[in-house]
């Protein structure tokens, strides 16, 4: 049945006699005024845009972010912090961990073996592969080192971003990070804040099915 469907559909599409429908020249993306931003401006715009969407942004030095993370976590009551031990910051995180902090929970088994735990943990931390200043969004490429659910099931998602990886636009990120030369990950993501909805009377509320909070550490 489906083998025929394919042939039938394609032959119907090819039976068309429309002329002059291509080729099309796609005009360049319109440059939004002031979007050739300096590094500092990119950090500022990203921060502003993310905060508008209720994310919390902390711009910190690469050497000091762990201390700030620990201070932030001490002020909260959390049952654990989910992370990938092979994440870029994995060894540093483990080395810096202390008794009085929520326990570090490594994500090392397939989801089938730890589903309950993943759906009940309060916080997760991942790296971000980059970010987009224009619209305000993080780029995540989950992988074996940092699986997909770390940024989804916990109520608090913490993301760690290198300020040098903030691009002006989404298109620029695709070009400069050479997305086409890499093998695309099973799941690439743009994330612009904690999960939200406006499905009831268009009233914006945060924390629906994904994380209720997003905290971004921008390492400058």
């Amino acid at each position: 049945m489906t083998a025929n469907a394919r042939a039938n559909i394609l032959s119907r599409l090819r039976a068309t006699t429309i002329q002059g429908q291509g080729p099309f020249i796609v005009p360049d993306a319109p440059i939004i005024a002031g979007l050739e931003l300096s590094l500092e401006e990119r950090i500022g715009r990203l921060q502003r845009m993310l905060e508008t969407m209720h994310a919390e942004v902390r711009v910190v030095s690469a050497g000091g972010w762990l201390e700030e993370l620990k201070a932030m976590l001490r002020a909260r009551t959390l049952n654990g912090l989910l992370y990938g031990p092979a994440a870029p910051f994995g060894p540093a995180l483990e080395g810096a961990w202390e008794e009085d902090l929520p326990p570090l929970v490594p994500y090392i088994e397939p989801v089938e073996q730890c589903r309950e735990r993943l759906f009940n943990i309060d916080a997760g931390i991942t790296s971000a592969r980059g970010a987009i200043a224009e619209t305000g969004a993080l780029i995540l490429w989950p992988s074996a080192a940092e699986p997909r659910l770390i940024s989804l099931t916990p109520g608090l998602h913490i993301a760690v971003l290198d300020a040098g990886m903030i691009f002006n636009t989404f298109a620029e990120a695709i070009d400069q990070q050479h997305w086409l030369r890499h093998r695309m990950p099973a799941n690439a993501l743009l994330i612009s804040g904690p999960s939200k909805t406006a499905d009831i009377e268009l009233t914006l509320t945060f924390g629906v099915h994904g994380p209720k909070e997003l905290v971004v550490f921008i390492l400058s």
């Binding site: 969407m53 994500y107 090392i108 088994e109 397939p110 989801v111 987009i132 619209t135 305000g136 969004a137 992988s143 074996a144 699986p147 997909r148 659910l149 695309m184 990950p185 099973a186 799941n187 690439a188 993501l189 743009l190 994330i191 612009s192 804040g193 904690p194 999960s195 939200k196 994904g210």
Partner: peptide
Amino acid sequence: ITTYFNMITSPRRLDELD
């Protein structure tokens, strides 16, 4: 932009956990 823009290119790869 929306909160999530989800780009799916393959099922779980051999070494992946979810």
